[in-house]
Each structure stands twice: as C-alpha cells, then as structure tokens.
Design a protein around this nucleic acid. Structure first.
Lengths: 139, 139
DNA sequence: AGAACAAGTGCAACATTGTTGCGCATTGTT
DNA sequence: AACAATGCGCAACAATGTTGCACTTGTTCT
C-alpha cells in the first residue's frame, strides 16, 4: 500500500503544485489530526514555519481543493482534508460540518441522503451546512 | 404606525441596552439595506463612527439577538436584522442565507418546510445553512 | 547526474481587524 | 436637575492578511 507521503505528493503534483517538505508536513498534520484541525493548532504544530509560509501553504491547498475550510459558528477556522476530488472552482462535499459545543471538536459528517434545497427563481450551486450540538463522547 | 426609530429603541430597551443615536443609526442602516449588508458597506455608511465603536456596537447587537451574522463561503461578513425574537443564547432562524455569485448580494430566505438534520449518536442544537448560486435578477 | 527554469520560502514591511483600558459624555431613572 | 450605569472616542497593542523581493528548492530535460 502506498504510504501517506507518496499519496500527498501525488495529490500535489496532480494540481501542478510542487511536493515540498513543508506542504507534505502540513498535509500530514491535517490528515493525522482526528478531526478538523483548528488554525491555532496548525500554528502550534508548525511553529517552525514562517507565518507567511503557513498562510500561503494553506491558501494553495485550499485553492487547489486538497483541503477545505470549516468555520462553524464563526469563531475559529478549521481545516480538513477533502475526501472527494475537489478543484478550486468546486468544492463538492457530501458532508456537513458538526461542531460539538462541549469539546469544541469539529468533524466532517457524511450524510446518507443528500440534502436538497430549492429556492424559487434561483439557481442553487452550492450548499454548506454547519451543525452544532453535542457529540457522542460528550453526551 | 410606530416609526422605525421608536421600534428600534424598543428592541434595545427590551434587552437593557440604551437607545443611543449611534445604535439607532446603525440599526436603521442595516434595516434599510435591501439585503444583508456587508461589513465594508457598514463601515462606509458609518465612517463617522470610531472603529472601536462600530466594533462594539455590532457585537452588542449580535449578542443581544437584534442582528445576526451571515458569512457565506467565508469571505466577507454580512449582517441582517433578526426577524424572530432572538437572544444571546439562541439565534433561532428559520431561514437560510443565499449568496448570489454574480452580484454578490446576500439575502435571508425563508424556508417553508423546516430542514431536519439528524446525526447518529449526537444531539443537534443548531443548523446553519449557507447557499450560493445565482439570484433571480442575475439569471 | 547536472543545468535551467519555474515555483516555493523567509524576511521585512505594511494594512486591516480584533481587543482592552481609561476618561469623558450620554441615557434612563429618581 | 442630579445620579448611576452605560456608551463612546482615543490610544495602544495583538493577531492576522497581504505583498514584494531575494534566495532556495523541486522538477524537467538533456
């Protein structure tokens, strides 16, 4: 089986991004974090990154659809790997973001039956759903 | 019929906030804007406010549930009046936020049939839905 | 394997926004 | 009218966003 690093390098090269050590490290941190990782945690784990490098690396990965952002209830920003193949134009997720109000963990939850939302006289292109509540561990 | 200013003063006093000219002016700007107002527009219309005053006024009104925030697709932040009676603990909206990708307007759209989301083994407390697409004017 | 080119990174610098403290001004009340 | 609680402007600092530029590194081509 292909190891993580090889897989990440492939993801990067597919999008014409160079597979640099910084990017591979950031991806490994994001991927190994059990849930969506808060920005502050990324900073902590990657404190040896220059602030600007962290900023640009995150942006590059967001733009190219390798990671995605989840900002539930407008406090801190969280990042997680994209599961499906996403591009800069279209982040296509069949999941919702769930934030536990107790432990503050944010996770991506797959939804079985796709959520249909129709708004009269409009074309709906993208739907983002952010749910907050209490997770199984905190009940 | 009660004029706007009197109505706004009532909203404020209900929540033990003083009905100051600044707050009344901000509320009138938010209420008279045809859709959800972007922060930059608030700044523009209220450039005679001190930066900190704008910040604290917005926060006070958010906290007390007189206005609410809509941040669709994580770019600029938008504000709109709360239609139902909200409190700091519970913003209770039966609407979704719709952002037109063409004209960039954000509006609150009422949904007729409430959206039910269930996640196994969790307690769902709040659901926020942000939709983007093309509005009727831009089709 | 090495050269050449395109892309990535660190540093410096500046802009914007968030946040707090404090003294003065204003509102709502007695 | 006067008092107390709250709101407001100013100053100051922190955090983050953003850009330019010089140096380094990954990738490709030979």
């Amino acid at each position: 089986m292909m190891d993580m690093e090889t897989k990440f390098a492939g993801l990067l090269r597919d999008r014409n991004l160079k597979a640099t050590p910084k990017r591979l490290e950031l991806l490994s941190v994001v991927a190994n974090y059990h849930t969506a990782i808060p920005y502050s945690e990324l900073q902590k784990e990657l404190h040896h990154f220059d602030r600007v490098t962290l900023y640009r690396t995150i942006n590059a990965l967001l733009d190219s659809g390798i990671i995605h952002k989840a900002s539930v209830s407008s406090d801190e920003v969280y990042y997680a790997m994209c599961k499906e193949y996403c591009t800069s134009e279209c982040h296509n997720h069949k999941h919702v973001h769930f934030k536990c109000l107790e432990c503050l963990e944010v996770s991506c939850v797959d939804v079985t039956n796709p959520i249909q939302i129709q708004i009269p006289n409009t074309i709906v292109k993208q739907v983002e759903i952010e749910v907050s509540g209490v997770c199984s561990k905190c009940i």
